[in-house]
Design a protein around this nucleic acid. Structure first.
Length: 817
RNA sequence: GCCGAUGUGGCGGAAUUGGUAGACGCACUGGACUCAAAAUCCAGCGGGAAACCAUGUGGGUUCGAGUCCCACCAUCGGUACCA
């Protein structure tokens, strides 16, 4: 193989000089905005995962360019976040310094990859010229009532005096010091994403996204229809609502359960029960949500000593607390119907609570409790005999008349908590003034700069709070003394709108120009991992809708088409991580096989959408393949140079070759369009094998057909191996870039020439194949099959009962011996 | 736990979406070239002597199932402060 790293360098320099990948702003061509999820500069270098994400998707962008699109493919960095801060705490290196350095390295490596990115349009979320506008968006959402403050629990490590990310909590313990983590409430900022819950579900219909991702989002939002029912304390001194999807079973309620952290608990708990309740609450604070909601874990609870009245039958029912009820889902309280709910049944059995059956099976059969299906009501007074569906409506109606209930829609989706008690993020642009209250920082005072000299080591206080110079400020309204919000924004806020900034990345006056964003968005193809299915991809959709409603853009959805690349695991089949010691460094492969060799192997050796464990065994195959292509080019160059015009006829061999050529153009195009790079390369290899077979008898080839096939071949290879193809293109005598060429056209007539095989089966089992001319009619094919000697033999040896002929595809006989 | 995927030769992976299972490669075996080796080229390559048996396991639908249905098993991703 002659191809090497030096060839990469040669072409990278040339491309840069010629500005080959600059987006043409005023082009008449149709735009294609292809976007890869930007990277987080946590490590010092590009890792294998970056290569797997960005290499193949760059090939996709290159393909689109050859197909005549004005491709916009920018790249940037999601630069704020926890890992840089943790690294800083550990090493003392300031997050800004480490991040800046990492970005520089990664940028250089992305160029070495041959990524056709337009670096004129880039974003770095940690730069003031970017986060100024993140902050501005926050203030606009705040002014529109979409940002608000309320109390919410955080993971608190009392020995480190710091808030922990879920990731830092291992087995309910602090990852650093091992002490038990408690849930502690803090006042925090939220975005009202729940306002958009309905649209976030509805608009999924219009998107070209994987169905599985749509499902994840639908379930994440978790819409359910049901009723809210009001329970009043037995003395009328308190009341609360429960949410239920089964109002038909309300006559079977034998107790109610409220979330342990609910404020109501303190109010209603009796003296006798106080000690037990408090102890239970303390235990609950140690648990995370996954444990609390697990149906595997045995349910626990404590009686509060208080009672409430069931509004449907005025019965007195005990009020319990249990950790499986969450304060922020539904109303934070549930009615328990042990006869018709698994969990309630187990709970009631454990604590000896009564079980009252109120729904029987429709077919009158004896029902085994708990009976969770719909049926016919019993033991329900005037509702007896109604079906569950009828009863749901009737009971809710009756309760509504007495203002004891209403039908509602409940969403599992919670508002988006955007406050972080951390240093390395965009400061929340809010000022607290004794006189004017909470004030958003006006645009002219933005950005609120993140100060460099701050003590970010954890000691119980938000890092920014420790910077006097940051905290003290003037109220923009009254000019009086005021203080700043010390929390920073969740990095997901920064990444929820970057797709709008890219096309107008240098705008100093605005976050983005409305006309430009309307022209360039939505993103035509968005590429990234499916781990973002629920969070980032919902946040970005929410942000689009919020900005639309505020008048800053005119479309509903940010990403028209979505493709998930798979994950490359370590050679041991586990997720790559430094701690597991199973990481694979791309450098040595690039050194040996060149950027294209590595990129091609990533595309050929794995299913792009699936990923899989790293295995270097196959990488040699690409080097061998490149050698074979180089050999073919040598042959072609010799042919071009030689003056003798050989066979000019187009015979059967030429027809066969041209058929393969056109089929290859077609299937490679379709495969790249679908991100099936492995099969695209397989098709390319087949075409190469075919050409090699053709030129075996050098004296007997049609020069024109052969050269045409070779030139086509290099064009087909150009998006997949950009440096390598450019080099071969030059060898063929071209002085302009192959990346300026168009994707070859398909000649339908040439493609459908030749022969094909029709399988003949008996009882679905293959017996033989009959070769027919590909362009004959289905009837002609059937005749050819039936007149085949071996097929006639089958008719003789078997008792044929039925013939099944799928025109042009298969011929099957149902038969006995 | 819940939600979403995935499971095909020794390995990576194909399969026109219900129609020839194993494309294209890797590894391996044999041959050619060579003093020899490497490289390269040629041939073979799921199991079985064959009938046949084979797409995680067990059922089902169908003329026909890797593909559709039901029940299980295993692995992976997400689970709201990793991004």
């Amino acid at each position: 193989m002659n191809y090497s790293k030096e060839i990469d360098k040669k072409w990278q320099e040339k491309w840069k000089k010629e500005d080959l990948y600059k987006f043409e702003e005023n082009s008449q061509k149709k735009k294609c905005y292809t976007l890869e999820m930007f990277s987080y500069p946590s490590g010092a270098k590009l890792h294998l995962g970056h290569w797997f994400n960005y290499g193949p998707s760059d090939s996709f962008a290159r393909y689109k360019r050859m197909k005549g699109y004005n491709v916009f493919q920018p790249m940037g960095f999601d630069a704020f976040g926890l890992p840089a801060e943790n690294y800083a705490i550990k090493t003392g290196i300031h997050p800004e310094d480490s991040t800046r350095k990492n970005i520089e390295t990664m940028k250089r490596q992305l160029e070495e990859m041959g990524g056709s990115f337009d670096w004129e349009h880039t974003v770095e979320t940690c730069m003031p010229d970017y986060y100024k506008w993140t902050q501005w968006i926050f203030t606009k959402l705040y002014e529109a009532g979409l940002a608000y403050k309320k109390e919410a629990p955080v993971n608190w490590c009392d020995s480190c005096k710091t808030v922990l990310a879920n990731e830092q909590v291992i087995d309910c313990k602090c990852e650093r010091c091992g002490s038990v983590v408690q849930r502690k409430k803090l006042a925090q900022w939220f975005f009202k994403i729940t306002d958009y819950a309905e649209e976030l579900i509805q608009k999924l219909d219009e998107l070209d996204w994987p169905e599985s991702t749509k499902k994840v989002q639908i379930n994440w939002i978790g819409k359910s229809y049901g009723s809210e029912i009001k329970f009043v304390g037995e003395n009328g001194n308190f009341e609360f609502n429960v949410f239920t999807t089964r109002p038909d079973t309300v006559n079977g309620v034998t107790y109610v359960v409220i979330a342990p952290e609910s404020k109501l608990v303190q109010q209603i708990t009796t003296k006798e029960q106080k000690e037990a309740v408090d102890k239970y609450i303390q235990e609950t604070l140690k648990l995370n949500e996954i444990d609390r909601l697990s149906t595997e874990r045995e349910k626990t609870g404590v009686f509060t000593g208080a009672y409430a009245i069931n509004p449907i039958n005025d019965q007195k029912v005990p009020i319990w607390i249990a950790d499986y009820v969450l304060e922020d889902y539904g109303t934070g309280a549930v009615m328990a119907v042990p006869a018709h709910d698994e969990r309630d049944y187990k709970f009631a059995t454990k604590y000896n609570l009564p079980i009252v059956e109120v729904v029987k099976s429709k077919d009158g059969k004896e029902t085994k409790l708990p009976f969770t299906e719909y049926g016919i009501l019993v033991n329900s007074g005037k509702y007896d005999g109604l079906s569950s569906d009828e009863a749901k409506v009737k009971i809710t109606e009756d309760l509504a008349k007495r203002e004891k209930g209403k039908s509602t829609v409940n969403y599992r989706l919670k508002d988006w908590l955007i406050s972080r008690q951390r240093y390395w993020g965009a400061p929340i642009p809010i000022i607290y003034c004794d006189k004017c209250g909470t004030v958003a920082v006006p645009e002219k005072n933005l950005p609120v700069l993140l100060p460099y000299d701050v003590e970010f080591r954890p000691d119980g206080v938000s890092p920014l709070k420790k910077s006097k110079e940051f905290m003290e400020c003037k109220c923009p309204k009254c000019g009086g003394k005021a203080t700043r919000e010390a929390d920073t924004l969740d990095t997901f806020v920064c990444s929820s709108w970057y797709q709008f900034r890219y096309p107008d990345a240098k705008n100093k006056e605005k976050a983005f120009d409305k006309e430009i964003v309307n022209k360039m968005l939505p993103v035509d193809v968005y590429i990234g991992g499916k781990e973002h299915a629920a969070m980032h991809l919902i946040y970005a959709r929410f942000m689009t809708k919020a900005l639309r409603d505020l008048g800053y853009l005119d479309f509903d959805e940010p990403f028209k088409r979505l493709v998930h690349q798979g994950l490359i695991l370590g050679p041991d089949g586990n997720k790559m991580s430094k701690s597991k010691g199973n990481t694979v460094a791309p450098e040595e492969y690039i050194e040996k096989y060149g950027s294209d060799g590595f990129r091609m192997y990533l595309m050929f050796g794995f299913d792009y959408k699936k990923g899989g464990p790293w295995d270097e065994k196959g990488i040699e195959s690409i080097a061998k393949y490149f050698s074979r292509v180089e050999k073919l080019i040598e042959t072609a160059v010799e042919e071009i140079k030689s003056s003798n015009s050989k066979n000019a006829e187009i015979g059967a061999k030429e027809k066969d070759l041209l058929r393969v050529k056109n089929q290859t153009i077609k299937s490679m195009g379709e495969d790249i369009e679908e991100f099936q790079f492995n099969t695209a390369i397989a098709r390319a290899m087949e075409f190469l094998n075919k050409m090699n077979e053709y030129v075996k008898e050098r004296d007997n080839i049609n020069k024109e057909v052969f050269i045409d096939c070779v030139e086509t071949y290099i064009k087909l290879l150009a998006p997949l191996a950009p440096h390598f193809a450019e080099e071969q293109w030059e060898k063929l005598g071209h002085t302009t870039s192959v990346h300026k060429e168009e994707w070859p056209e398909i000649n339908e007539k040439q493609m459908n020439g030749g022969f094909k095989e029709i399988p003949v089966q008996v009882n679905g089992k293959l017996k033989l194949c009959v070769t027919v001319e590909a362009d004959s009619t289905p009837e002609e094919i059937l005749n050819a099959i039936k007149s085949n000697e071996k097929v006639q033999e089958i008719f003789k040896t078997y008792n044929v009962k039925k013939e099944i002929y799928v025109p042009g595809k298969i011929y099957n006989l149902v038969a006995e011996k």
